[in-house]
Amino acid sequence: MATRVFMSAATEPSLREIAREAGVGIATLYRHFPTREALVAAVYADQVARLTEGAHELLTALPPAEALRRWMDLFGNWVATKEGMLSTLLAMIESDRISHTRTHTALIAAIDDLLRAGQAAGELRIDITAEDVAAHLIGIFTVAPLPEQGARADRLLGILMDGLRPATPGARTPQSG
């Protein structure tokens, strides 16, 4: 529930607002999360786990390129969730209460797993790295934040996926004129 509140908030929501949306009293919320930082850390950890586990679940259910595209949607939702808790999250990263490096490593590993599966299946270019994909995703969700620019983000993700696919024989590429 807190994740949804953080995602839909333009600014950081109050703990009272989160408790109200969750259908619990503020005392119950404080009993489980004594500080805003504890709640943000729990939501953040849950979202990172969903992203990394989501990559593996998608790969078992879908062809690799489709799994990667669906995972990109999960990533966009994760970015949107962070907007509602950004100032607290940044303060926690700055004070080393949350490890940005550990999160980065986990997300790059998830992207790498998706890429390698797609490359092995011949669905994705072999010259693309997980860092390349991560940089593109950050750029896309910076210029087309969710949920307000979902259609634009979807279009940009489609263009990205087109660029990640290997060229078909005889297809024109920017290098071939």
Results as ranks from 00 to 15, higher is better:
6 F>Q: 04
7 M>F: 15
12 E>L: 01
13 P>E: 06
14 S>A: 04
15 L>F: 10
19 A>V: 02
20 R>Y: 12
21 E>K: 09
22 A>N: 08
25 G>C: 01
28 T>G: 05
28 T>H: 08
28 T>A: 07
29 L>H: 07
30 Y>D: 07
32 H>I: 06
32 H>G: 10
33 F>Y: 11
33 F>S: 03
34 P>H: 07
34 P>I: 03
35 T>K: 06
35 T>V: 08
35 T>H: 05
36 R>Y: 06
38 A>I: 05
39 L>H: 02
39 L>C: 04
39 L>F: 06
39 L>D: 01
41 A>M: 13
43 V>Q: 02
43 V>E: 02
46 D>I: 05
46 D>T: 14
46 D>M: 13
47 Q>C: 14
47 Q>R: 10
47 Q>D: 14
50 R>A: 04
50 R>F: 08
51 L>S: 13
54 G>H: 01
55 A>E: 00
56 H>Q: 11
57 E>C: 05
60 T>C: 12
60 T>D: 11
63 P>F: 08
63 P>R: 07
64 P>C: 01
64 P>K: 02
65 A>P: 00
71 W>P: 00
73 D>Q: 09
73 D>S: 15
73 D>A: 09
76 G>H: 00
77 N>I: 04
80 A>D: 04
81 T>R: 00
82 K>I: 07
86 L>C: 12
86 L>S: 12
88 T>C: 15
89 L>Q: 03
89 L>E: 03
89 L>T: 02
90 L>H: 10
91 A>T: 08
92 M>E: 13
92 M>D: 05
92 M>Y: 07
95 S>R: 13
96 D>G: 15
97 R>C: 04
97 R>D: 14
98 I>T: 02
99 S>K: 08
101 T>S: 11
101 T>R: 08
102 R>K: 15
102 R>N: 09
104 H>L: 07
105 T>G: 06
107 L>A: 05
109 A>E: 15
110 A>I: 01
111 I>R: 03
112 D>C: 03
113 D>M: 10
114 L>T: 00
118 G>F: 00
118 G>H: 06
120 A>W: 14
122 G>P: 06
125 R>D: 04
125 R>K: 06
126 I>V: 15
129 T>V: 07
131 E>P: 07
132 D>L: 01
132 D>S: 03
132 D>A: 04
133 V>A: 01
134 A>K: 15
135 A>S: 12
138 I>L: 11
138 I>C: 11
148 E>P: 11
149 Q>N: 13
150 G>L: 07
151 A>W: 12
152 R>Y: 15
153 A>S: 02
154 D>A: 08
154 D>P: 04
156 L>F: 09
156 L>H: 10
156 L>I: 07
160 L>K: 14
160 L>W: 15
161 M>K: 05
161 M>P: 01
164 L>N: 03
168 T>Y: 09
171 A>L: 13
171 A>R: 12
172 R>G: 09
172 R>M: 14
172 R>F: 13
177 G>Y: 10
